[in-house]
Amino acid sequence: MGEEEEKTEQVAPVLSVAPGPHISAARSMRRVMIDVLVALVPAAATGVYVFGWRAGMQMGVCVVSCMFFEALFQKLRKRPQTIGDLSAAVTGLILGLSIPWTAPWYVGFIGSAAAILIAKMLFGGLGSNIFNPAMAGRAFVQACFASEMTTYLLPGKIGPPRAVEIISQATPLAAGKFEQVAYNLQDLAIGTVNGSVGETGAIACALGGLYLIFRRSASWRIPLGMLAAAAVVAGINQALTDTVMTVGHHLLAGGLVFGAFFIATDPATSPLSSRGRWIFGVGTGVLVMLIRLFANVPEGVMYAVLVMNMTVPLIDRWTVPKPVGGRVQK
């Protein structure tokens, strides 16, 4: 092997030494994030179809702002740029999809600042954040711009809500809760109803979500647990009260499907073990329904996710999986 050794000495080292495993099947973080972006396309397309170009504007503002704020933060902290992993773009797109199309552009901009600077980067960046950044950002602007965030107008009618047509302008959940009016299930499934930009099309959200699960870029346990738990609570409610909102209405209306597949599955802010994921999914689903039924707001996905985010360290601690061979170490 004399030749090889000479080569090693003369030029840059030919042979590298590193710990195993020496091969890898890993998809890069960027690839995982691209999966999420692709999975969001049907929901985004539905939003643009139903609400028009301003829906696209909300997404664009949020994606660009989120990436801008992450780049800015890293620049100020003199750390390597991380926007290449596209996690900021995912946060931006989810945030853009979860605000009404009527909100002024600065709502998305400020929401992005809160999401990235406060909820994500101050906690240590990707993977270290406790709260789902998009939901934290949304909660921030919900508090700051209460009226802009709850004004749902039909497409093409930018302006203050009119007293007439209040039903057609309300979101399906608000209509059900406050007006005792149930929407057509078919409209709810397709998304031709009022709501935040990306949450109205239940089928579109589910399609993208199934793609994510098929690509193993999201846990299937969390969405399944969340939807099943919400269905059970809605079923109990339907059986015990004279509500117009059936199980189908609760499943298809509002942000439940969108949240189940795209928000609750955020790996950084959900548990690691499969048992933990079941608990997290079921807990989120129950909380969503409790908020919808008993709180003074029509929708509860955002608060449910944020509350459950706080329980993740505890769930992780309680659900350390049993190793093959049992818990007792000999």
């Binding site: 990707l126 790996p267 959900s270 073990s273």
Partner: peptide, 9 residues
Amino acid sequence: ACVRCGRCV
């Protein structure tokens, strides 16, 4: 950074 994706699990 670990994003807790859980693939190792």
